[in-house]
Amino acid sequence: MAHDGTASPTGTTNTELVRIATSEHRLARYGLIATALTFVGLFLVLPLAAVFTEALRNGPGEFLTVLSDPETFAAIKLTLLVAGIAVPLNLVFGIAAAWAIAKFEFKGKAFLTTLIDLPFSVSPVISGLVFVLLFGSHSLLGPWLQSHGIQILFAVPGIVLATVFVTFPFVARELIPLMQEQGTSDEEAALSLGASGWQTFWHVTLPNIKWGLLYGVLLCNARAMGEFGAVSVVSGHIRGLTNTMPLQVEILYNEYNFVAAFAVATLLALLALVTLVLKSLLEMKYSAQIAASRRH
């Protein structure tokens, strides 16, 4: 159909008729927008607003006092330490997995991809439980670990393991579709010009995937710092020692120390906001270099 603007008997042009026929009535449109905005307001905006309001309920002075508590400080340090170990580990794994899956054709590839996604369909509590069953005092490894003085559960190694488990797929998932889309011709060109494997990776592949990689790391980090269920099971909740920030929020909240709980929560909410802003910026500026599945 040619949208040529020829006037119809009623005086409307064809273009307008098409527009009218393929869009909703104005009232329906407003209704849908209002529904969507109310929903977003009730479920997304208000909870975020509540965190900041409750934290500043007694003024900024108390907010800062609460945050300078040594236990809170220890929780912040532990969270940074755990994310600082877990994210780089999954970064290396993600690149390796994406290299194998995206650049080669081999048997069992689809199955391997499914296995990588597995942690997403496992409850965080179960992700913690599996490590308790593996390293607990009643397990096969437990007595041996105990006799050698190795502490995994209720200590930093257990928290790191549980965090690595739940954040396992993030980087790989981001890189696999992206690298599949980019194909292998760039690498083949570099190799045929005499570059070594590592040179090809550093100078050809890595620049191609850097924004997608950053995107994956961003999401991985947000989850690593915010993980609650899995970490809660393996941490043992030892104050000042094995409490991460989300666990500290829980403890303070359960002690009815609401201002302190929400004060720690604001730090995590700020982390979430920074993550969202960076993520949107990456999507806006480098949409072509981020996995196809994320583009919109």
Binding site: V40, G226, P246, V249, A272
Partner: peptide, 23 residues
């Protein structure tokens, strides 16, 4: 709004829990 949709991915669940309870 589009960016906000991802908030539940980024906001730690414990924070979401106490915020929703407050509301």
């Amino acid at each position: 709004i589009d960016a906000m949709v991802d908030l539940p991915f980024a906001l730690p669940t414990a924070v979401a829990g106490i915020a929703l309870t407050t509301l």
